[in-house]
Nucleic acid binder design. Structure first.
Length: 292
DNA sequence: CTCCAGGGATGAT
DNA sequence: ATCATCCATGGA
């Protein structure tokens, strides 16, 4: 019945070029969109949205065209971005695999919160935690006959206790999320104001929050603050570096990896990183079994 | 069953 | 400054 209602639903549309909705939503940058019918249901900030790609058109309900275009970064010069990547075989392979994958513009709080929960968790687990937090503490919305939930505000989470968060399977991450929610929810820190900071100041500010280190800070910079140079290094990227870029080298320290990535991948390093990550995770190259 | 995941905080060298 | 250890949980 959901399918019937969706098929009868009148959807707005925008023309798209060089955009792949499925790859974008399944690339481990955002964790709450759920497949329904031929598309996805989710939220953009506090708006329930259904979105579906048909060729070079994006059909949607619940949002204005400008909100859709902004959230999915349809204005990013993707061809130019890909041309800026280093021209090596690893990067060429990842770029070919990730055609149309865009770095979206997420609301800062939900991006920060979900990446605090992400440490030592698989993408599927992060999705479960995000879903549990939304279902229990977010606001229910209906879009195209589907129920979705907003991500709970920092104030809402700040008012909870650690036990309630652990019941969402957050484990030891519960304390970090709670402490950071209390900084943000009380107004002690203002995430919107931080968009004015330089990359370095923003990174330092984020790293002062409980549960936020260099990796999570770079994810939040990239996925919420549009700092497209920010280059998160996680276990998958470490494997790509070790296996694809430095197969002979014995030992690489954290600082070595950081220095190489910042210098090598250029002004859109965050995009390059996301393509390497997604290719390694979904394309089986640079994955666990690929010893070399 | 074991292994590992989009890490970070803490305490010991 | 680097290094080891601990932290929870569940998919593969």
């Amino acid at each position: 019945m959901v399918i019937l209602r969706l098929s009868r639903m009148r959807l707005a549309q925008v023309a798209i070029d060089n955009f792949d909705l499925a790859q974008t939503l399944d690339s481990g940058q955002v964790f709450h969109w759920e497949r329904h019918a031929n598309g996805y249901a989710g939220t953009i900030k506090d708006t329930g949205v259904y979105v579906e790609q048909r060729g070079n058109r994006l059909f949607f309900a619940g949002a204005t065209p400008s909100l859709i275009q902004r959230y999915f970064s349809l204005d990013h010069p993707l061809r130019q971005i890909c041309q800026s990547f280093p021209n090596d075989p690893v990067m060429r392979g990842a770029t070919a695999f990730c055609r149309g994958l865009r770095i979206i513009r997420q609301p800062s709080w939900e991006c920060l919160a979900t990446f605090i929960t992400s440490s030592m968790k698989q993408v599927a687990h992060i999705r479960q935690m995000s879903h549990a937090l939304r279902e229990r503490f977010g606001k229910p919305l209906t879009i195209c006959g589907l129920q979705v939930h907003t991500f709970p505000s920092a104030e809402r989470i700040a008012a909870l206790n650690e036990k309630e968060l652990r019941e969402c399977a957050l484990g030891y991450r519960a304390k970090y999320l709670l402490e950071t929610a209390r900084f943000v929810g009380s107004g002690t820190i203002n995430l919107e104001q931080w968009s004015e900071l330089s990359d370095e100041s923003l990174r330092n500010s984020l790293c002062q929050l409980p549960g936020v280190g260099a990796k999570v800070a770079n994810c939040v910079m990239l996925f919420a603050y549009e700092r497209l140079r920010a280059f998160p290094i996680d276990v998958w990227i470490e494997r790509v570096l070790r296996q694809q870029y430095f197969p002979k080298k014995r030992k690489m320290t954290t600082r070595d990896r950081r220095a190489f990535c910042d210098a090598y991948f250029g002004p859109y390093g965050g995009y390059a990183q996301q393509y390497l990550f997604h290719h390694a995770r979904k394309g089986g190259v640079g994955g666990k079994g690929d010893a070399k």
